[in-house]
Design a protein around this nucleic acid. Sequence first.
DNA 1: AATAGATACATGCACATGCATCTATTATTT
DNA 2: AAATAATAGATGCATGTGCATGTATCTATT
Lengths: 169, 169
Amino acid sequence: MDRKPNNQTTAIWVLLNIAHKRVTQTFEAELKRARLPSAAWYDILWALERAEEGMRQNELERQSLFDQPNLSRTLKRMVDEGLVTQCPAPNDRRGRELRITEEGKALRSQMWKVYGGLMLSEIEDKIPAEHLSGLIDGLASLVPEKDEKLEGKLKTARETAINPPKGSY
Amino acid sequence: MDRKPNNQTTAIWVLLNIAHKRVTQTFEAELKRARLPSAAWYDILWALERAEEGMRQNELERQSLFDQPNLSRTLKRMVDEGLVTQCPAPNDRRGRELRITEEGKALRSQMWKVYGGLMLSEIEDKIPAEHLSGLIDGLASLVPEKDEKLEGKLKTARETAINPPKGSY
DNA sequence: AATAGATACATGCACATGCATCTATTATTT
DNA sequence: AAATAATAGATGCATGTGCATGTATCTATT
């Protein structure tokens, strides 16, 4: 007879789904209420704002949670809105060099007022201090270190933690 | 000047997204590889299998992560596949009484072989013992206790943890 | 008992997502 | 150098999701 998941495993699986849905829905709802784009757009804008000298599209794909086709389309919409520019990449004629526009920076700054506030109200204020590191370590153990696709994202997580946007609060 | 989220808050927000996406994608990919329906279908089947004497659709809505229109459509597909029956509710002619069919039970049992295995390989085997309770408590603190919409789901989490499917492993 | 409001569920529509595939370009092999 | 494979990115299609709204029924108010 096979092994079966224990109670704690089940609780984690269920809570991971519930907590994620609850928190992301709150983020999306509040952003929409403020007539702002989704959190995914914020993440793209912020990644590009940190990359002063532009960023290749495939690099952004690695750092983001988008798959390639979805990122392609999302960027197209953002270009249409004047938030991002897509130039041919210098040394690779297949590639695209992405850059945030001034409008993009302005929008990100606007969004940060809501987005940053939600991080405080929905996360920081809700988690008791004694559970902070356990939650971080527990979540991190679910993500494979060697997975290239996610390594960049973890690095980004640390950078974002250490170096929050200037002039946005 | 406003408060700004600290490093740990940022790490949690990023990791919550990465971990959730990573784990759910693995679940969905493996289920698809085994030519089985999505994890959401499993959850519905399992909820209905536990409700021996049937379950009202709005009650299932409360216990699941579906919103109402989406649950309505998903159930329609499941009825079309012969996994679930939708009868008029006895005391409320607006309502529907849901019941799992024998085929539905058989499918859930099939799915459990994959689903349960994934809970072991993607969660139980990855989280070191010392982080288990921290992860559970941390995630739980993100979910509002008084939120009626989620209370049932937390209860379900505990029940599921305590009372795993019989004859499915 | 008549009306107003709430609830249960379904449907239409816009948009996001996953997946397969296509084109163009670059890298590798022989 | 030619052929093959690998990579960057775009696009088509099927499906899932959120949100607004519609219809039927039930509940509460007067």
